[in-house]
Nucleic acid binder design. Structure first.
Lengths: 142, 142
DNA sequence: GGGAAAGTGGGGACAAGTGGGGTCCCCGGT
DNA sequence: ACCGGGGACCCCACTTGTCCCCACTTTCCC
């Protein structure tokens, strides 16, 4: 289970530390790819496999499905943690997410998202100050 | 079952003691996150899991649902009690709830809320003044 | 009022995060 | 085939933060 928002630095070599409490779940490999809303999505290998099969099963006749398939698969890379528990973010993916020097590693229960701080701020601004709105959404969606 | 209101200090390291009678129910982990009305919400792991499952099931095709999902999980932290029965309140969550030196730990049956004394005072003052009115509005719900 | 449990606070060990340096290997050029 | 450049990865060092342990104080309950 991935939780929390962790600010981490990307060093000159493009490496970024993965929060220590996430590492066990990622020890046997992970897949990093483009996520929705211009973030990066990181899946433990065990979670990636069924997800890939689902996406693969989308009808090829549907234009949106084709686009989505390309979004996910075209830039996907499988990585392993290095001996310091870091991953190397490929330049294309960093560019896609607008990540430069700093990044936010966000646990989203079953997967992990990586955000540029600026984009994250714009996403969270909508609900940040308004707890009541969160509550209403909770009530209506659940 | 959590009941009662307990005043506790937050020390210089951000640690806060959990009332002794709450500890058994929190022994196998807990999740701390933002609560409604600028308090912090603390769930025993057993209560958190079904809640997380529900949120996880929200459709990723809906942008609002994606944002909601991200914020709920991103602002949550999973903690364990230290050997003294304390938890470490992350600085972001303390800032969100306006908790500095002192905090109120409030049992609300299935979960626990943590308040800054000032905010609690203003909320409970409102309840003192309008208690009868609030009760009337709620009458239809019970 | 006395003892035990709970709460509070500080010191220190250890792990996590960060960044730099060095080495091996692949690959392309001579 | 050999050499040189670049990238990926490992190792090491330093800094920061977390957590354990110990000690003291306060509160609660006999």
């Amino acid at each position: 289970m991935f939780l929390g928002r962790h600010a981490h630095a990307v060093d000159a070599k493009g490496r970024m530390a993965v929060p220590a409490r996430f590492r066990d779940a990622l020890a046997d490999g992970l897949v990093l790819t483009r996520g929705i809303d211009r973030c990066l999505a990181l899946y433990p290998m065990a979670a990636w496999r069924p997800l890939a099969e689902k996406i693969d099963a989308l009808p090829i006749s549907d234009p949106d499905a084709r686009t989505f398939r390309r979004l996910v698969f075209a830039e996907a890379v499988d990585l392993t943690l290095d001996t310091q528990g870091r991953i190397l973010l490929p330049p294309e993916l960093r560019a896609y997410a607008g990540i430069d020097r700093d990044a936010l590693v966000v646990g989203v229960h079953t997967s992990v998202e990586i955000w540029s701080p600026e984009r994250w701020a714009s996403v969270s601004a909508a609900l940040d100050d308004d707890g009541a709105e969160v509550a209403q959404r909770l009530a209506s969606l659940i």
